[in-house]
Structure formats: C-alpha cells, structure tokens
Design a binder for these strands. Structure first.
Length: 427
RNA sequence: GGAGAAGUGGCCGAGAGGCUGAAGGCGCUCGCCUGCUAAGCGAGAGCAGGGGUGAAUGCUCCUGCCGAGGGUUCGAAUCCCUCCUUCUCCGCCA
C-alpha cells in the first residue's frame, strides 16, 4: 500500500513512477485523490460535531452534579440527541468513503525502484551470469526420465490422489530434499537469520498485509469453513510475524529463515510447464526474510541476492540473474532479482530463486514499525528471498549432474546431509 | 468439542456511566541537589488521523484509541451483542 499522504502531496511523482510499470493503476490516482478530499471534508464535519457534543455533555454533567436539573439541561440533552444522530449519519458516510479508499489503495502496486528497468517483461535485464552450461556427450534426460527407473517421482499416483500437478517424491530424492533444506538452514543461520517453521494456514489479514490479497487471490487455496488460507510462500507468515508491532531499532535488521510447504493453485497456468514437478500445487521452500531500516534496504537487498548466488555457486549450478522490469514486478516489490538456473532439458535458464525489496509497501499494510532513541516510529522495509525452492533445485541438480548411466552426482555441499554421504544418487 | 475466568500505558495494577489519556507503583527521559553513585526533589513522557500556522526541525487546536468491531446513552474503560486472544478444568489427539 502506498502512503496516501504521498499521493496527496506529490501525485505527479507517483504517476510517473507507476508509468514505469506500464501505467498500472495510474487511472486510480484521480479516484483516490477525490476520495481523499471528501474523506477529509467529512472528517472535519464529524469532528466538529463530536467536539460540540463532548463539551456540551460536560456541561450537562456539571449541571447535574450541581443539582441543577430543569428545562435548560433538558434542552441541551435534546439538542445533543440530535447532534448524536447527525454524527451517526456523517460517520456512516465517512466509513463508506474510507472503505472505498481502502479498496482503491489496496490495488495500487508499489512504486518501482529507479534501478528497476522500466517497461514490461522483455525489458528485464540480465545482470550476471555464472558458470557454463555443460556440454553433454550423451543425450541428457529430463528430471522425470532420470527419476523413472527408480520411481523417484510418481506423477501418476500424485494425480490419482491429489489431482494434476501433485507428485509423490520418493526414495533418494526425499533425502536430497532434506539435504537441501538442512544445508540452506545451516548456511542462513550462520549468517544471522533466525530459523523459523511458520504456520502455513493464515488469516486474510496476513494475506492482505503482504499484498497477495486482493491482487493474487485466485492463486490462493482458501479454506472457507475456517476462514483460512494456505500460503503460497512462507514470506506471508514471516512478514506477518511482526504485524502490528513496533520493533526496536537496535535489533534491525531482523532476519528470519523460514522452512515451509507452499501451496499454489496455479490458476491460469493450464498447459504451462506441465511435465514433472517444475510447476506443482505443493512444494517445499526455504525462504529468507528481513525487516530492516528504510535507509539500508538497498544494501540488504544486495546482501540477500548475494546469498542466493552463493548458494547456486556452491551447488555448482550455472545460472544467470535478471533484474526484473517494473512492469513484471509483483504488487509489493519495488525491485526484484530472479536467479535462473540452467535446465539442460529445456536448454534455457529457468527461475529457481528470487529476491524482492518491498520497501514500506508491506510494512504499511502490516503496521510494522521500528523505533529508536532519536525518532520513530517509522515503517521498516521488508525484503524476501528464496533460499532454496526444493522442487526446482532438485530438477536443476538432477539434470545438470546426471551421468550417462542415469546417476546423479550429488553436489559436495549436500553430501554430508545425506545418509552415507554418497557421491552419486541411484548407485 | 464442553464448562468457566480474564484481556487497561514499556511493565505491574486501580477504576463498576460524567474534568480518567486513565490513580498508585516499577521502569524511562530531562533538570535540581549532594565530591561520585544511590537516595531525595521538580518536571516530562504514548499512538493514529485531521484542522490552523510557519521557509523549516516546529508550534497549536481538535478527534479517536483501555483486545477488535458494533449497540445503548446527552455522555462508555465502565452497560449490552459479536468476534479474537490468553488461562483453568473436562474430553479428544500427533
């Protein structure tokens, strides 16, 4: 959510920034400004009436205390009864306008960072490239084919039990999954991120607070009976962890690394990435999250992006990093890097991790602030980044490190976390 | 799931329709005082929204905030309803 005061005081700057996203929600600004104006007009009226009522009520109290009843007091009571009615009416109008304002405001995305390229998807800019896609002296298989001989990924039964885009992960891949998780958690904990296993079912409040509602509602599994939502990423419960709180400035940046299962409806993705576990309804992910001082979120963003690259490099996965264009950013993000690992079967780079700076967009909704000796409270900045998206990383490892015999070489950093510390899986 | 109890400022805790944004205590900040510290004395201190004013850090006024949201009333921390949370007992359970 943007600051209505900013929109009020400098609408042109906001307009221009939104234009870099391709003009999203630009049209909403005029509505927003009009609503804001009538809101403030009404507010003054209501408050004047409240003021009147408060002072006259006090007079009534004094008169009664002094034992003075009589017609004068009765007249005042009657007058205030009327004022009370007027307040009620005005209040209802005010509530209505505030609700509209809220609806509009919730739909305006964050202002992009100046260093995010303007324009749509095609304007996203490759910033880095690491490693060289391997030249195979045999035809490389994709992750499903590699899994098939030892039944490591069972899509058929996944579909039988859960429907399409569900899978059973079996055998060695389960160990590989937890090796990745363990490796990621250890690394992040060593860098000062506090490990967290968060709730994966959350209230609407958390979804709105993080900006997934209302924009991405159709991507979310909603449990109507209990008014809960399955999270698509632990970013949601991690961000909401400090909802309605004032953090101590001395504690900033407050960093967490969360491990959770993630659930996504993938509505509108029909026919896209249908093979294997690249795009499924359920996957596990290790996610990092940071609440930081507004002045240092750019550095924090680079720090977190750096961790993501370090991990891909330690795993030995060739990748490239892309600075996502403004028009392709999620609603909450001001800037985002995607890290794309080379997927041999697709002969292209595909997103495995990403890292977003949401500035104060989420914290304003979440009411998450910090306070120091000098000043505050002020809104913190929030950042999130994938540490390991287990499914996609497994795919990348399987495909990049396959042997002609169909074995999978285990990245050395993961071996200690697998029983027997094997060099190859499937041996 | 059933039966009870409770949610007040950074913390503890009073308050049971009318100068209560909220006693008292602890903690905190700034003065004063004693050679330092402690004690003592004095003062101050919350958040949000809005109006006025100023070039500005600001000043000033108003409104709201005693878990959240409604209601009753001239007036609600106090009465009523709904929800949330916590605690106790029973049941169930990994």
């Amino acid at each position: 959510m943007l600051d209505i005061k900013l929109i009020r005081s400098d609408p042109d700057a906001v307009r221009q920034a939104l234009r870099r996203r391709g003009g999203v929600a630009e049209h909403a600004l005029d509505t927003l400004l009009a609503l804001d104006t009538s809101r403030r007009e009404l507010l003054v009226q209501v408050e004047e009436k409240r003021n009147l009522r408060n002072s006259v009520s006090e007079e009534i109290a004094k008169a009664k205390k002094a034992g003075l009843g009589g017609p004068e007091v009765e007249a005042k009571v009657a007058a205030m009864r009327e004022v009370g009615g007027a307040i009620k009416d005005l209040d209802a109008q005010l509530k209505e306008i505030e609700a509209q304002l809220e609806v509009e405001l919730l739909q305006v995305p964050n202002l992009p960072d100046p260093t995010a390229p303007a324009g749509g998807e095609e304007e996203s800019r490759e910033e880095r490239r690491w490693g060289t896609p391997r030249q195979f002296d045999f035809p490389p298989r994709d992750h499903l084919d590699l899994a098939a001989p030892r039944d490591l990924i069972d899509m058929e039964r996944g579909a039988k039990v859960g429907g399409s885009r569900f899978a059973y992960l079996k055998g060695d891949l389960v160990f590989l999954q937890f090796a990745l998780v363990q490796y990621a958690l250890h690394k992040l904990a060593a860098k000062g991120f506090r490990p967290v296993v968060p709730p994966v079912l959350v209230r609407d409040e958390a979804m709105y607070g993080t900006g997934f509602f209302p924009t991405d509602m159709q991507q979310v599994y909603q449990i109507e009976a209990d008014a809960l939502n399955l999270v698509g990423t632990s970013e949601v419960p991690l961000a909401a962890l400090h909802m309605n709180e004032i953090l101590d400035e001395a504690d900033l940046p407050v960093r967490y690394v969360g491990y959770s299962t993630c659930f996504r409806r993938e509505a509108g993705a029909a026919g896209k990435d249908t093979r294997g576990i690249f795009r499924v309804h359920q996957f596990d992910k290790v996610e990092m999250f940071s609440f930081c001082h507004p002045d240092s979120s750019r550095e924090e963003h680079d720090f977190m992006w750096g961790i993501e690259r370090e991990i891909l490099e330690e795993l030995g996965l060739p990748y490239r990093s892309v600075n996502i264009a403004a028009g392709d950013l999620g609603a909450s993000a001001a800037k985002k890097y995607d890290n794309e690992a080379w997927i041999p079967s697709q002969e292209r780079y595909r997103e495995v991790t990403s890292c977003s700076n949401c500035t104060d967009y989420q914290s304003r909704r979440l009411k998450c602030r910090a306070k120091g000796e000098k000043g505050g409270p002020y809104l913190v900045h929030t950042l999130n980044g994938t540490v390991v998206a287990v499914g996609r990383t497994i795919i990348a490892i399987m495909e990049n490190f396959q042997t002609a015999d169909g074995l999978i070489e285990v990245p050395s950093v993961l071996r200690p976390h697998i029983p027997g510390a094997p060099e190859y899986l499937g041996a």
